[in-house]
Write a protein that binds this DNA or RNA. Structure first.
Ligand SMILES: [Mn+2]
Length: 341
DNA sequence: GAGATACACTGCTC
DNA sequence: AGAGCAGTGTATCT
């Protein structure tokens, strides 16, 4: 479990199975921290309700979206309209490429500037770009993907601010689009061997010491040396980012209970042996569910989810349709993009 | 230049 | 009827 040489470690996809029965509840108004098995995410409320409402209103007034006819992507050879509205803002000249498309940043508008400043101070990381996705109703969605663009500064975090409708957000380890025959793994029991008892309190630090993810870059010729460098970088940012412990004051209203009942103020920790992932929560009421190999969490109005390295190296995420929902959601993903210089 | 990848869809089962 | 998986059938990037 400790110090093996990076080069000697092997990542085996699907070796680690999530406990399908795991269901975690917490009280709301604060923070969740997920660590382990390649996941490194922090979640908290970033704005109190009234403020979030105002910000959403301003976003609706100020943000301009691509014309529908421009919002198209090509996937698996076919062109499709995006199942959502999209736009991009950022520092002058910053562009972001994904899935063959190039987005050119519009100059910051006041509300995005304001939100960016708040999120920068909360996460202690600068951002020079924000991708805006507007989900008109529960039919709008986003498919599984990783934010693994080369334009992103290696090891930097992505801060995802949610305004409006609460929608589920899913993480999945499995690769999209199963390779056929050649690499197909021999069927392996997909059943839930439920021996949930195990427990074996994994420590929060298994992220940096365990080898489950570290030797494996994704499927593009990253070297072990790259990986080591990223580990170092991640360590740096890791030490700066988790401000969760300091949030118990009234800063940002993170613990203000103006919309929910908040009971426990103690930090509790849960872990599932199969998940090898630690979930810490502070007085929280959102439910994180793990079923099969999916981890699902609702993203509330006024919240921020910080996806840190190495989350996007291995885990896909998606915003699946929720067809019963009728209301809009605006999502802002703040990013740090390489500028040519 | 070869090999991996795919922010989308449909079609199917439950 | 909604949710979630499987399989894309070809351009693009490394
Ligand atoms: Mn994303």
């Amino acid at each position: 479990m400790d110090s093996q040489p990076l080069a000697g470690m092997k990542f085996e996809r699907n070796k680690v199975r999530l406990d399908p029965e795991l269901l975690l509840f917490a009280e709301s108004g604060s923070a969740i921290r997920i660590r382990g098995d390649g996941l490194a995410c922090d979640y908290t409320r970033a704005f109190r309700r009234a403020e979030a409402e105002r910000l959403l209103e301003e976003c609706e007034k100020q943000i301009e979206y691509m014309a529908d006819e421009d919002a198209r992507v090509r996937v698996f050879g076919a062109w499709h309209a995006l199942p959502r509205q999209q736009s991009a803002y950022g520092d002058p000249g910053v562009t972001y490429r994904y899935s063959g498309s190039t987005l050119l940043a519009r100059p910051w508008c006041p509300v995005l500037k304001e939100i960016r400043e708040h999120i920068e101070s909360l996460t202690e990381q600068p951002y020079n770009f924000v991708l805006v996705n507007r989900y008109r109703d529960g039919r709008d969605h986003m498919g599984e993907h990783r934010d693994d663009e080369k334009d992103l500064v290696r090891g930097s975090a992505i801060a995802s601010v949610s305004l409006g409708a609460c929608r589920d957000f899913c993480f999945r380890r499995r690769p999209r689009g199963g390779r056929r025959s050649v690499n197909a793994e021999p069927r392996e029991s997909r059943g839930c061997c439920r021996d949930a008892s195990g427990g074996s309190e994994s420590s929060t630090e298994d992220l940096s010491s365990s080898g489950t993810w570290s030797s494996r870059t994704v499927h593009n010729g990253g070297s072990d040396q790259d990986t080591e460098q990223m580990c170092e970088m991640s360590g740096m940012i890791h030490s700066k980012l988790p401000k969760l412990d300091n949030w118990s004051g009234n800063r940002s209203g993170a613990f203000e209970n103006d919309s929910v009942t908040s009971k426990m103020l103690s930090t509790c920790q849960s872990s599932a042996s199969k998940l090898k992932c630690t979930i810490e929560r502070c007085a929280n009421d959102i439910a994180i569910t793990v079923s099969g190999d999916r981890l699902v969490m609702p993203l509330e109005h006024g919240s921020v989810l910080v996806m840190k390295w190495p989350t996007n190296e291995v885990w896909c995420h998606a915003l699946p349709p929720r067809r019963r929902d009728k209301s809009i959601r605006v999502n802002l993903t703040f990013r740090l993009i390489h500028t040519g210089v």
